[in-house]
């Protein structure tokens, strides 16, 4: 218990933790501000204004069309014999739907899931960096060796650090998720709409939020474990860059080899499927040389369960390797 208390204090006292959390909060604040200023509440005034604008544009289009028609009819007949009624476009009122002229408005029901994804991605990035630095700087500064002189239980020390970090991360993410929901509820009420918000919709948001939390924890655990494996913060960042390069290579090679659903080899796609419940991948090559006109593309649906199993295996392997090396490798 004393070790957990010490590690909690250490995590909160670290300047890097504070900086990254503040940075993440600023990005989230910018997202809220952007949403706030780019949306507005729609009422009778906005509808009337949109209808008036649509009508004005329609009248202008009619005027231009009539001018073109007059020009066409005044001109000598063309050799191809196409009549003016076919040469000149004549607008119709339905082509000027007033809803296209409505200002952007924030619909909580349809747009909040995207906002949860934004929160998840920002927090996952922050979690990776904080996790990597939390253990990486301990290794590179010699702090880990000092700690092990006091608590010579390697696996317990590392797992306590990880548990403390993930617990803190869970608390922070849940807190921010709650605040996020409250903030966007407010944005929707003032600058948008909260129509069709039922208990079922909130439940669905809750489940998406839990998947977001899991994604943040996965990123944090991976950053922590990679830095511990390399005994340096830079190891986690290097692994991330290496993984990015590898992913591009794998994607290109898979395409060259004409594998189906090459996007499935790219890890961020798993994250997308995880947050969005499912992702449908299509194989555009499946209709090449197809003799039938209505060829249906081959499809692969990556569900959140598939993506979750994939991420769980990756986390288990990397964290397991970190624990194993902690137990086996000499500390020099």
């Amino acid at each position: 218990m004393s070790l957990a208390r010490a590690e909690s204090r250490r995590l909160f006292k670290r300047r890097f933790t504070k900086l990254i959390v503040i940075g993440a909060l600023l990005v989230l604040a910018a997202t809220v501000a952007g949403t706030w200023f780019s949306n507005e509440k729609v009422g009778a005034t906005q509808v009337a204004s949109a209808k008036a604008q649509a009508d004005r544009d329609y009248q202008e289009a009619v005027r231009q069309s009539e001018q073109e028609m007059a020009k066409c009819q005044a001109a000598p007949p063309t050799t191809d014999g196409v009549p003016c009624s076919e040469q000149v476009w004549v607008p119709t009122p339905d082509q000027y739907d007033y809803t296209w002229y409505m200002p952007a408005t924030f619909d909580l029901r349809s747009e909040f899931p995207n906002m949860i994804s934004v929160l998840a991605v920002v927090l996952a990035g922050a979690a990776f960096l904080i996790g990597a630095s939390f253990v990486g700087s301990e290794w590179s500064s010699g702090g880990m060796m000092n700690l092990l002189l006091w608590r010579p239980q390697r696996v317990r020390v590392l797992s306590t650090k990880l548990t403390v970090f993930l617990s803190w991360l869970t608390g922070l993410t849940l807190l921010l998720l709650a605040a996020w929901a409250g903030i966007f509820q407010l944005v929707a009420e003032v600058r948008g709409s909260t129509e069709k918000m039922t208990a079922g919709v909130w439940q669905s948001f809750g489940l998406t939020g839990l998947r977001a939390l899991a994604l943040v924890l996965v990123a944090g655990a991976l950053g922590f474990a990679l830095a511990s494996l390399g005994r340096h913060t830079g190891m986690a960042l290097g692994a991330l860059v290496g993984l990015g390069a590898l992913q591009i290579g794998v994607y290109v090679m898979a395409n060259l080899a004409e594998f189906k659903f090459t996007e499935a080899w790219v890890l961020p796609v798993w994250g997308y499927a995880w947050l969005d419940k499912e992702l449908v991948l299509e194989d555009f090559r499946s209709c090449d040389y197809s003799a039938t006109a209505g060829c249906e593309l081959d499809k692969f649906t990556m569900t959140w369960q598939t993506a979750g199993i994939g991420m769980a295996i990756v986390v288990a392997l990397v964290v397991g390797a970190a624990m194993w090396t902690m137990r086996k490798r000499d500390i020099t």
Binding site: L3, A6, R9, S141, G142, G143, N146, R151
Partner: peptide, 27 residues
């Protein structure tokens, strides 16, 4: 057992007081 091994190594951004109080908590 109190020990120092080789050159002293500490996390540079913490004060001496914080460094020792964290060790005290851990131990």
């Amino acid at each position: 057992v109190g020990a120092i091994v080789e050159s002293p190594q500490f996390f540079g951004n913490f004060t001496a007081e914080t460094t020792l109080s964290l060790l005290a908590d851990a131990g």
